[in-house]
Amino acid sequence: MINYWPLIGILLVVAGFALRMNPMLVVTGSAIATGLIAAMDLHEVISTFGKAFNDNRIIAIVWIVLPVIGLLERFGLQQRAAAVIRKMRNATTGRLLILYLLYRQITAAIGLHSTAGHPQTVRPLVAPMALAAAEKQHGGLTEDEAEKVKAYSAATDNVGLFFGEDIFFAIGSIVLIQQTLATYGYSLAPLELALWAIPSAIAAFLIHGARLALLDRRLGRSGQ
């Protein structure tokens, strides 16, 4: 008989986020509770945490990257990125973000997921450049307009990564899809699943690219 009690951990996560508690504490607490409810002793739960951390130790690179980005920003990285865009005559927010979307999808499709992202490229480079392009084309932006440009910059990274990474067959999401389909009797190789991700990636590029092109028009109308 299937034991559904460990699913209480999901409710704990939902409740913790709803109460706006510290996300790290919520996730850690719910994971420990789930393990204990699943009849694991505390030592086994902690051992599982340690094994997961060891298997994914590349995450520790973040602690090296963040100080470097902080130093670069301290010495004017955002200002220099914005200055470069202001010198480009035909640069617009939409065109810049479309190019970044293309770059993000291509690099994700060949497995280079960590070459870009919110902390290392969007915040210090992409968002300031997009804002500079908008101000150069439409003049000063209101707070709402500036926040919209930042949101589109972050969304562009999300769309590019999400729909680009599944083209790379040696990734966890492809393995998960393969195993799920196998349980229902569909035997597919990872490469076959990756090829079927290409039409979705193309559609995502066209749809989000059109939204970015429309962003230029909206900023132009609001600036008049």
Rank of each mutant, 00 (worst) to 15 (best):
P128E: 01
M1C: 03
L97H: 01
A116S: 15
A109F: 08
G29C: 04
I69V: 15
I167Q: 09
L141H: 04
A127D: 07
I174F: 02
V126R: 06
V126F: 08
T93N: 06
M24Y: 15
L191P: 02
L42S: 09
I207D: 04
R123D: 14
G185Q: 11
Q105A: 15
R95P: 06
T34C: 03
G209V: 06
Y103G: 13
L195G: 06
P128G: 04
S187A: 15
A203N: 01
I202V: 15
E143G: 11
S153L: 08
Y103V: 15
A182G: 09
G139R: 09
E192Y: 09
P124R: 05
A133F: 05
A213C: 03
A83T: 11
R217S: 02
V13I: 15
R95L: 11
L25E: 07
I2S: 06
P23F: 00
M129N: 02
R218M: 05
A213M: 09
A18E: 04
E147C: 12
Y100R: 08
R86Q: 14
F168T: 00
N54T: 14
L77N: 04
G140M: 11
V45F: 07
I171A: 11
G94Y: 05
E165W: 00
A60E: 01
R95V: 09
S153D: 10
T48I: 09
D216K: 05
N22Q: 14
R123E: 14
P6F: 01
A182S: 12
I174P: 02
R123G: 13
T115M: 13
L25M: 15
L11Y: 06
L188E: 11
L141F: 07
H113A: 14
L131F: 06
F17S: 01
H208T: 03
I202C: 10
V84M: 11
N3S: 03
R57E: 12
A108S: 15
H43T: 14
L161K: 13
G164Q: 02
E143Y: 10
S153W: 09
P23L: 00
K51D: 01
G164A: 05
T107G: 03
E165L: 02
L7N: 03
L181S: 05
G50D: 07
T107Q: 05
F162L: 14
G29K: 00
A39W: 07
H43Q: 14
T92G: 04
G50E: 02
T156Q: 02
A197S: 15
L11F: 13
A203H: 04
S200G: 09
R123C: 10
A39H: 10
A133N: 07
Y186P: 08
V159P: 00
T121S: 14
E145P: 06
V62H: 03
L131A: 08
Y100I: 14
S47C: 10
V159A: 00
D41T: 09
S153H: 08
A130F: 05
M129W: 06
R218A: 10
A170M: 13
L66H: 09
Q79D: 12
P128I: 07
L214E: 06
